[in-house]
Nucleic acid binder design. Structure first.
Lengths: 214, 214
DNA sequence: TAGATTGTTAATCGATTAACAATC
DNA sequence: TAGATTGTTAATCGATTAACAATC
């Protein structure tokens, strides 16, 4: 085991790291120099112990009595979250959702670049667009040419598993899936499912459960 | 405490319930009559004990030896998830994401109806559209007239907290938030945040963490 | 009846929180 | 130095899993 080998954090932990990072960006723009675990805890809605525990998992240390340097901490979190380099992503399926993501302004602001969109419908092709929309047959070539590792999948459910396999064989390592089907990911690749129907069902349950307690 | 008062399930549990429900729909269309906890576990990617434990939390019982009746079970899960009635939702903010959700075909198929979209930009108004896009000023009136309880928020981050408060004061009980900011929900209302940037940061971390272990 | 599956209790596991010695 | 905050260990909490008696 190497000295700097780290335990793999879980999803909740990484979501907290994103929140700390966002809070730090705000502090940075306000010219803060130092920050305490207490402040970050408030900003992220967790306990100060949780913050310190999360940092210790990644070997991030501060100064007893002096807290953490905003700049250093920000750099370290950015590196963990891949914000230290431009992340190129392809969007597969240029329907409702795919088209929205292709032009989502929030990505630009956060170091994420949509390299291209892909579809099987010639009516969607727009090779001169910004980003371009290309035939699905050009996916593998485009991914390899630019060494893209991330894909957003926004195809119909019946096509999703097949397109996933195509995508992975082209070299994609991580997929954000919007198709309403729970995809099976082979080892060595990461798939996160966002299912809008499930999210609303969740909301409905908790709305009912909350108002039922009389 | 009432006899049929149930412990509040957590989010993970409800996500599993959605998966069981989806698996049951498939079995139903294949004319299956009975199903065992084992089958549902496979379909949802969990253990059989987990399935039975989840059911017991909701007082759902089967038949020792005979498993569960597909129809009955489906009805019970549908009721918990609000699928026994049409769920009306408003979409606030008709930008990239909002427009995509306004016309997302997956909602129709799953008993979710978009009542209307709302925006402050007159260029977006389209009162005769299907669904209509109306001025934000008409939000409260429209929500009350149709007794809508759910909203999807897809406005810019700087507007999100203010629009959330407007939405809640109009009577909305549950909000699915796409604005990249962690909204504070007052008690008695439920807010679920979907942050695309955070989702991609998660993916990036796990892609790196997976490929780093050499 | 014999056999298979449920429903539930107890054991395990992992994540969060509390506490406090180390130290700046 | 005295005081405040970290880093880490131990305690707590909650969720998942295993096991098995009940029973169809």
């Amino acid at each position: 085991m190497e000295k700097n080998a780290q335990a793999m954090a879980n999803r909740s932990c990484i979501i907290r790291l994103s929140r700390y990072k966002n809070a730090l960006n705000r502090l940075k723009s306000l010219n803060f120099v130092r920050v305490f675990s207490d402040n970050l805890a408030d900003a992220a809605g967790v306990t100060a112990a949780q913050v310190r525990k999360d940092f210790s998992l990644f070997g991030i240390t501060g100064n007893r009595r002096g807290g953490y340097k905003v700049d250093d901490l920000s750099d370290q979190l950015n590196k963990i979250l891949g914000k230290d380099q431009l992340q190129e992503v392809v969007v597969i399926g240029v329907g409702n959702i795919g088209r929205a993501l292709l032009h989502y302004p929030g990505f630009d602001r956060s170091g994420i670049s949509i390299a291209a969109g892909f579809d099987i419908d010639p009516a969607k092709y727009h090779p001169d667009g910004q980003p371009p929309v290309l035939p699905l047959e050009q996916l593998a070539e485009a991914i390899r040419a630019r060494d893209v590792r991330l894909a957003i999948l926004a195809v119909p459910d019946y096509a999703a598993q097949q397109v996933l396999e195509l995508t992975l064989s082209a070299g994609i390592k991580g997929v954000l899936n919007f198709a309403p089907i729970c995809l099976k990911a082979p080892g060595g690749c990461v798939v996160t499912n966002i299912n809008l129907e499930t999210e609303l069902e969740n909301l409905i349950y908790f709305v009912n459960a909350t108002s039922d307690r009389n």
